[in-house]
């Protein structure tokens, strides 16, 4: 019990530091892939410190209370998600919230971005806000299919409490439905990886903060500590969404293989989880970011609603077929 309370206090703060670490690694790797040297690993931390020193300008026509509270809401909500996700260890708030909760909590940071953009009373920010909203509408469809498919797979193989994240990350889903199920799950995993850059606003889906088109979009009027909070929220969101993907599709633990016990087991599992999260982020965010260009907003909708949706439904059918055999 005390352990739980302690973890509940430590995990969100650790999430911020880990998020900044991943951001740093991402920048170095992207730079090396583009033939540059890249900034040092602690650059994101320095960026945050720089932002905290700058002035916090609130536009005249902006709805002040909404404008200033949205970064706060974004960071708080995204840190709260970490408490419900299994980070190698069982989720801190196990039994108090499940997969659907995580799915809905992931909406709140993006919603805070949208409302903050609209509250800025800048035309660039409004365009950015509506683009972000359209993007959110688009990627929720394949994300929902992915999440429900995994839950359904567990349900039809007779598990109890299929939406609880500890059950999902404790069951190895890849073997549950035979060969068609394996194929279906692979397709759905691919779609999930495709959703991650959309969720994080990385290229090719960074329409809402397009620097060259709409002067920073949502963040056009944000500066100082508000922008710092949004930056931190973005960093933590990467950890959260990647941890969700890992929990759904890559739930393996290391301590069983090495036969560790006592206090070493959760630590080893946690480190292995960080490794898996790095792998997911590298494949879906870093590599994609350096090789593609930005998509137009109408393209974003069709890109998410045509191929990933059809593929995910195909995957779901394969899974359903696999369970019947």
């Amino acid at each position: 019990m005390i352990m739980k309370v302690l973890l509940a206090m430590v995990v969100p703060v650790a999430g911020i530091l880990i998020g900044l670490l991943y951001k740093g690694i991402d920048r170095i790797l992207a730079a090396r892939m583009q033939g540059r040297v890249g900034p040092p690993l602690v650059q994101p931390l320095r960026d945050v410190r720089k932002l905290l020193v700058k002035e916090n300008i609130v536009p005249d026509d902006a709805v002040g209370w909404l404008f200033s509270s949205m970064p706060f809401v974004a960071l708080v909500s995204v840190m709260a998600i970490l408490l419900y996700l299994p980070l190698g260890i069982t989720p801190v708030l196990e039994g108090y919230g499940d997969l659907i909760l995580v799915l809905y909590l992931l909406i709140i940071p993006s919603l805070a971005l949208v409302l903050g953009g609209f509250a800025s009373s800048s035309p660039y920010a409004s365009v950015g806000g509506q683009r972000e909203m359209v993007k959110m509408m688009s990627y929720e469809f394949p994300l929902a299919i992915a999440v429900i498919s995994v839950a359904w797979l567990l349900y039809s193989s007779g598990a109890e409490n299929v939406f609880s994240l500890s059950v999902i990350s404790g069951t190895h889903v890849w073997g549950l439905a035979g060969i068609p199920g394996l194929a279906g799950l692979a397709v759905i995993f691919l779609c999930m990886l495709f959703v991650i850059p959309g969720e994080l606003g990385r290229i090719p889906f960074d329409v809402s903060e397009a620097d060259s088109e709409i002067a920073g979009g949502i963040f056009a009027e944000y500066s100082g500590r508000n922008l710092a909070l949004f930056y931190l929220a973005d960093a933590v969101k990467a950890v959260a969404i990647a941890s969700l993907a890992v929990a759904l599709f890559l739930p393996y633990t290391v301590s069983g293989i090495f036969g560790l016990g006592g206090a070493a087991a959760p630590a080893a599992d946690f480190l292995f989880h960080l490794l898996k999260v790095f792998f997911v982020l590298f494949v879906s965010s870093t590599v994609v970011r350096v090789v593609t260009g930005r998509l137009a907003i109408s393209r974003v909708v069709s890109v998410y609603w045509k191929y990933p949706v059809i593929l995910s439904f195909l995957g779901l059918l394969l899974i359903m077929g696999g369970t019947l055999i």
């Binding site: 909406i107 919603l111 409302l115 609209f118 409004s126 509506q130 909203m133 929902a144």
Partner: peptide, 16 residues
């Protein structure tokens, strides 16, 4: 789930 996210976008449009 899709319906609820679209509902959110409807009301965000109204709000904005």
């Amino acid at each position: 789930i899709l319906g609820s996210i679209l509902m959110l976008s409807v009301f965000v449009k109204v709000f904005a």
